[in-house]
Design a protein around this nucleic acid. Structure first.
Length: 189
DNA sequence: ACGAGGATGCTCT
DNA sequence: GAGCATCCTCGTC
C-alpha cells in the first residue's frame, strides 16, 4: 500500500483495539528537537489504560482539568506529574470523547545520548522507566495536549525489529492490578 | 540483585 | 488530607 501520505501514527491507529494499538507502539521512535539538541528513543515498554472501563485510568471518574487531553483527539500527548516530582507521558489513542491512552514506560536511546545523559545526570538507566524516559527526552507538562504528528514530540515508524514481546500486569497501580496490559519488547540491536 | 524509605506537589475527596 | 501510572540512595545478601 502506497500510504506514504499517512503518518506513522495513522498506521498505529489502524490497529483494531486499544491493546493492539499499545503493542503497535512498541519499536516506534519518539523524537524531540529542543534548543538544537535532538534526542530519539525506540519504545520498549508500554501500558494500556482504558478510560471509563478501567479503574486504574486517570479518566475512570470522568473528565477533569488534569486529564482533559485524554478526552480530546487521538495522537496527542497526555503528560502528567507523578509523585510530585516526575513527568510521565501517554499517547492518546481513543477517538475524541474516548479517553483511552497508552503510557510510555521504557525505551532504548537511539540518538542524542550525550544530551540524554546530561538531562538525566547519569550515564546508566537512561530511559528504563516512565519518569526517566520523559526526562531523557526533555518532555514536561508544557507538552501536554500537543500532537505527536505535528508537535514538538513526534512519533516515527519503527526501525528496530522486535524479537519478543512479554505481557504482564501493569506496574505501580493499586486498582485493576490483574489486567495484563503491560507490554515489554525486546529489540534486535 | 533486591528491598526499604524518603522526596515532592498536585489532584480530587 | 489521602493517595498517587516514580526515582534515587543506601543498606543487605
Amino acid at each position: 500500500m502506497a500510504d506514504q501520505h499517512l503518518s506513522a501514527f495513522d498506521d498505529v491507529l489502524a490497529s483494531s483495539s486499544l491493546l493492539d494499538t499499545a503493542v503497535a507502539l512498541l519499536g516506534m521512535r519518539v523524537r524531540t528537537l529542543f534548543v538544537g539538541a535532538l534526542t530519539e528513543v525506540a519504545i520498549t515498554e508500554v501500558e494500556a489504560y482504558d478510560g471509563p472501563n478501567d479503574p486504574a485510568s486517570h479518566a475512570y471518574n470522568g473528565q477533569t482539568v488534569r486529564n482533559a487531553t485524554m478526552f480530546g483527539p487521538p495522537g496527542c500527548l497526555y503528560v502528567y506529574r507523578s509523585y510530585g516530582i516526575h513527568w510521565c507521558m501517554n499517547i492518546t489513542v481513543g477517538a475524541t470523547g474516548d479517553p483511552a491512552a497508552v503510557l510510555l514506560r521504557g525505551a532504548v536511546p537511539v540518538a542524542g545520548v550525550e544530551t540524554i545523559t546530561r538531562r538525566r545526570g547519569r550515564v546508566d538507566h537512561l530511559t528504563d522507566g516512565p519518569g526517566k524516559l520523559t526526562q531523557a527526552l526533555g518532555v514536561d507538562g508544557s507538552h501536554d495536549g500537543s500532537s505527536v504528528v505535528d508537535g514538538p514530540v513526534r512519533l516515527f515508524e519503527a526501525t528496530h525489529e522486535i524479537t519478543s514481546i512479554e505481557t504482564t500486569p501493569r506496574i505501580g497501580i493499586s486498582k485493576a492490578t490483574d489486567r495484563p496490559w503491560r507490554f515489554v519488547a525486546e529489540l534486535r540491536s
